[in-house]
Design a protein around this nucleic acid. Structure first.
Lengths: 358, 358
DNA sequence: CTGAAAGCGCTTACAG
DNA sequence: CTGAAAGCGCTTACAG
């Protein structure tokens, strides 16, 4: 039951007022060098740790901005979970005197920049922290860089931006995720068969990094399995036609997989149409309604779940811990584990059950 | 920027003092029925939500007891993670005016009851909450029941106790976990082969429930795979001899698995000794040093990870949320997802990386 | 049964 | 540069 050391104790031992201790320890102006050092020394000796619960009660409200795609249409499933993870952590910390501004953007990537610029103008000087996705176009990247240069702590989720001085990034380990797909499929199909891989958009780093991991695994184990790739993302019907073409002509295909959500749906549809459902192994990406239905129906054999909920939850926690406690995260890049989902355990991730908090 | 409603606002609107509002809303004695109802009505109408950060500053310190096996010997890995999960959440909440008493117990299950009884005697009336494992012997069960009858909120991890009025239990979904093992192995081996299953201790519910899930999956898909079972837990050398016997005589064995950590190690050793490493699929249970080494060495092909870290983290959170916010958890039984670990993603769970907080 | 007051550990103007 | 004082939103004796 040792009483916890408070700012008063330090003030007394250092022979100064509580206000001075506060200024000294938080690095605020208005304390003499000699005095500041003495206070810091005493605080360290006594093992003082500030009580952030108390400090939140009186300090100014922190304004946190969240800028993610709105959870509609194609973004319905993935970004619903991102928002959910963000909000769940905010909820956790809601008594800490924060002000949350949510800025969903719609109609594609290009509106991220608009939202950011507007917010920047409207709230100039009043933005204490920003959390957004690193999956951006050029203008989005520029907008994020301005925020950073202006001195706003920025956390990215899902994807990183190269050489940006953001405080951190939380994402899936795409290399490992690609390897997991390869490892599972290799353990299930013969050496002389083929895998059809939908590689998504080669310009999207999360896509090509998964493909890289996938390829690296096959090469490292010296697999003789033949990989047939179908790339492309935006022109769906073209991709679909090529998938169908490969499935019809390449009889050695024993497994299929996709690094993108959209590709997973198309794969499942084409497998069904060609009567191949259940006959070839099939791994889809991301946990959403159609993939889950296809997994339960036996069209997909597995889903790889990149855990956007947890990514956003963790990123929010890191940002807020920094703002409240002035503690920079122990690393800049955080990887959240991707999970291989089977028919047997998909129930553990349905209906918000993936929120293994509360 | 709408100002948050405080107890003062309610006091004013209800025409009473802040103290009375507090007593009315927390159900404390000393408020007239009519007055209490009025206050509650006003609070609801105004959407008042108490600020627990503020309340923690002044209320009495809550005493929380954690009683888990000490992280030594056989318990080194599994319970290290349980302690870690517990402590990580405590850390998160450490400014909320809590007093934590950790009571590890050693030399087997039987000492859980002793620790509990001693604590109960020594701290009688001063225990606000208890978190412990539901994997108990008879005396441990009796000790836990006394605590519950005494009115102490109790959260269990890892295993439940039947018909006990504990506030909740957080555990792996053992049925699903057993099914995952079966599903993965069935996708990798021929229909006319056999699986050697080390079923652990039939008296341990987590063991037999995994075996049940495993069997149920095979039956549901109408598999013709032959399952060879080796049960037993405490007499290791006897179990080991039987494992070896089966591996030597049953040539149809294409896969092995174990529902217990100890069984996993023995399986790996026997596979190696008989030159079968890498030739049969092998799924071990629990994430600890030897299993990880065997996975990397290609002796085990997968490890099923029951996530004790997250179980303890969540259980602690639920208990403390209840004590601080007086909110009963939305359910009594919480399942944490078990994760299938591959060689490709084991790095995501090593060196404390499973702590996907902080 | 109810209110006024003190105080939890901080932060923040304000005065000097 | 430094201190004294007020106050954040609660809870808790204390007095009536």
């Amino acid at each position: 039951m040792e009483k916890r050391i408070t700012i008063k104790d330090i003030a007394q031992k250092a022979g100064v007022s509580a206000g001075t201790v506060h200024r000294a320890l938080t690095g605020k102006a208005g304390v003499g060098d000699e005095c500041r050092e003495r206070v810091i020394r005493v605080a360290q000796k006594e093992g003082y740790r500030p009580n952030y619960v108390a400090s939140s009660l009186k300090r100014k409200t922190l304004r946190i901005f969240a800028v993610f795609p709105g959870p509609t249409e194609n973004n319905r499933f993935f970004y619903t979970q991102v928002w959910q993870g963000f909000r769940d952590y905010i909820q956790e910390i809601s008594d800490y005197n924060l002000s949350i501004i949510e800025l969903p953007y719609y109609n594609g990537l290009n509106n991220q920049a608009n939202e950011l610029q507007e917010a920047f103008k409207r709230y100039e000087g009043e933005i204490d922290g920003l959390i957004t996705v690193g999956h951006v176009d050029e203008r989005g990247e520029a907008a994020i860089r301005s925020c950073i240069e202006y001195g706003i702590p920025v956390m990215l989720v899902c994807d990183d931006i190269k050489n940006a001085a953001r405080m951190g990034c939380v994402q899936a380990n795409y290399d490992v995720t690609g390897r997991m797909i390869a490892e599972l499929l290799c353990s299930q199909i013969p050496e002389d068969s083929s895998i059809l891989m939908c590689g998504g958009d080669v310009m999207v780093s999360s896509h090509y990094r998964m493909v890289q991991g996938f390829d690296a695994y096959l090469e490292e184990i010296g697999s003789r399995i033949n990989v047939i790739k179908v790339n492309g993302y935006h022109n769906s019907e073209d991709v679909r036609a090529r998938i169908r073409g490969k499935l019809e002509t390449e009889k050695s295909i024993a497994a299929v997989c996709s690094v993108s959500a959209r590709g997973s749906v198309m794969l499942a549809e084409e497998l069904s149409a060609l009567g191949l459902a259940g006959k070839v192994k099939a791994i889809g990406s991301d946990l959403f309604e159609e993939n889950i239905k296809n997994l339960k129906a036996g069209i997909l054999t597995n889903i790889i779940y990149k855990n956007p909920y947890r990514q956003a939850y963790l990123a929010t926690k890191l940002l807020i811990d920094y703002l409240i406690k002035d503690e920079r995260p122990i690393r800049e890049t955080f990887y959240v584990d991707s999970i291989m989902v089977f028919r047997s355990n998909v129930s553990m991730y349905e209906n918000g059950y993936y929120r293994t908090n509360l």
